[in-house]
């Protein structure tokens, strides 16, 4: 008796436009979830306002030394990387578990679509709103930080190399890392709640790095370290994508998703 396997879709070449159609569909659904969109947009924006305001308060009211203020400002680049890894949990957890809940995946899987097209579509659908929201928060953050600290510092702190590397390399990779992790988790669980809870463990490496930064084991303001962390994220992303692809089992999805 032949062992039951299902890897039919893997013989077809990936059509990027199909992934884009899936992403656009996910974005259309997201647009209608106003609370979720509000949360995604509000959190980076709130950070973009709160962090410069805090720095300003410490500089003006607590008179912290300028060197400490600049160190503090520089460390916020890592904050945005943490948020970049955290927020995709909310979208990408919904994107697969939501298909389970609406039982729409069976109809999608019966179309001539490959596993890669579905996965890449899910990635793009979660990545775009994230990057827009975090870049918006970062732009507000830089503008406000410069506005509030210019008179004290005597120069514009932002933009700088460290923040640029975090913004253009670290943040996109952190988003993809968060998406990869939650796509992997959400293909194994049956509720959005479980996907959030298990997905939140993806942040542990960031917390560890943050603590290491706090006890001066590592500098999270150094461009080199941000680049190294980004490289680590890249490796994690590649591994997670390969594991997601390998474990994206149509048969299991059909039979076990209730």
């Amino acid at each position: 008796m032949r062992k039951s396997t299902l890897s039919w879709s893997r013989s077809e070449t990936m059509k990027f436009w199909k992934a884009w159609i899936i992403a656009k569909k996910d974005l259309s659904i997201l647009k209608r979830r106003k609370t979720l969109v509000g949360l995604i947009m509000a959190l980076p924006l709130a950070l973009g306002i709160a962090l410069p305001s805090l720095t300003y308060y410490l500089m003006i009211r607590r008179n912290i030394p300028l060197s400490m203020a600049t160190e503090l400002l520089a460390s916020f680049a890592f904050f945005f990387m943490i948020i970049a890894a955290l927020l995709p949990l909310y979208i990408s957890s919904y994107s697969l578990v939501g298909e389970k809940i609406e039982k729409s995946l069976e109809s999608l899987l019966v179309t001539p679509v490959t596993d890669e097209e579905i996965l890449i579509g899910k990635y793009i659908g979660a990545f775009l709103p994230m990057i827009i929201s975090i870049y918006l928060g970062e732009i507000v953050f830089m503008a406000l930080a410069d506005f509030l600290t210019f008179t004290k510092l005597g120069y514009l702190f932002y933009p700088n190399w460290s923040f640029g590397i975090a913004m253009f390399i670290g943040v996109p990779l952190a988003i993809i890392y968060g998406i990869s992790f939650s796509v992997l988790v959400s293909s194994k669980v049956n509720s959005v709640q479980s996907a959030y809870q298990i997905g939140a463990t993806s942040l542990i490496p960031f917390y560890v790095l943050y603590v290491m930064g706090e006890i001066n084991l590592i500098s999270l303001t150094s461009s080199t370290n941000i680049l190294l962390i980004s490289a680590g994220l890249l490796i994690a992303v590649v591994i997670l994508y390969l594991v997601s692809k390998k474990t994206f089992n149509r048969e299991k999805i059909i039979m076990e998703w209730k």
Binding site: K25, R32, R33, E106
Partner: peptide, 13 residues
């Protein structure tokens, strides 16, 4: 063409 047991449509669309 498949009409599955559950309609499986995107309810918000």
């Amino acid at each position: 063409g498949l009409v599955p047991d559950n309609v499986g449509l995107y309810e918000t669309l």
